[in-house]
């Protein structure tokens, strides 16, 4: 199979609103990546290379010493560092063996630039995170 399963991407809020053909195009860009239980997936403060969608397993999230809600199948992470080319805003650790599909910056940026639907969903997600951060 090339790229990520369509059924997985259909569950990802970021890609809801894309038709089947668009989803197939997006799916082809992804590459599979496995992380073992306990492995650090991304480290807060380090540079960011990829955006990930979780296909199976769970991941723990921490910002500084504060734990954030765990991530599970269908959740995504890693987009913020790709947008501003800054450092990772959280540490994500595999709570179980984790199967992800990832896009690097070089696929992610043209994808967002090319799809108003995805860009708007991304803005909604970022606005939600901003409000959540302001409420903390």
């Amino acid at each position: 199979m090339v790229g990520a399963p369509i059924e997985l991407l259909q569950r990802v809020p970021l890609f809801q609103g894309l038709d089947r053909g668009e989803l197939e195009q997006v799916a082809r860009l992804f590459k599979e990546r496995h992380f073992s239980q306990g492995e650090t997936v991304v480290m807060e403060g380090s540079g960011g290379a990829a955006f990930f969608v979780i296909a199976s397993g769970e991941a723990m999230v921490a910002v500084g010493a504060a734990e954030r809600p765990a991530l599970k199948a269908g959740d995504y992470f890693g987009e913020i560092a790709l947008i501003d080319q800054g450092s990772r805003s959280a540490t994500v650790t595999a709570a179980s063996d984790l199967l992800c599909y990832g896009l690097t910056f070089w696929e992610f940026r043209p994808l967002v630039e090319g799809s108003g639907v995805i860009a708007w969903k991304l803005l909604e997600s970022l606005a939600k995170k901003l409000r959540s951060a302001q409420a903390d």
Binding site: K31, G47, A49, Q85, G102, T104
Partner: peptide, 25 residues
């Protein structure tokens, strides 16, 4: 081979590339 591809696209590899002015695919 996929693991090696990801090692070249890992956070640490990309951070290194940014540091040495090689922020290219």
């Amino acid at each position: 081979v996929r693991d090696i591809w990801w090692s070249a696209n890992s956070d640490s590899a990309i951070t290194y590339r940014q540091r040495v002015g090689l922020f290219t695919r």
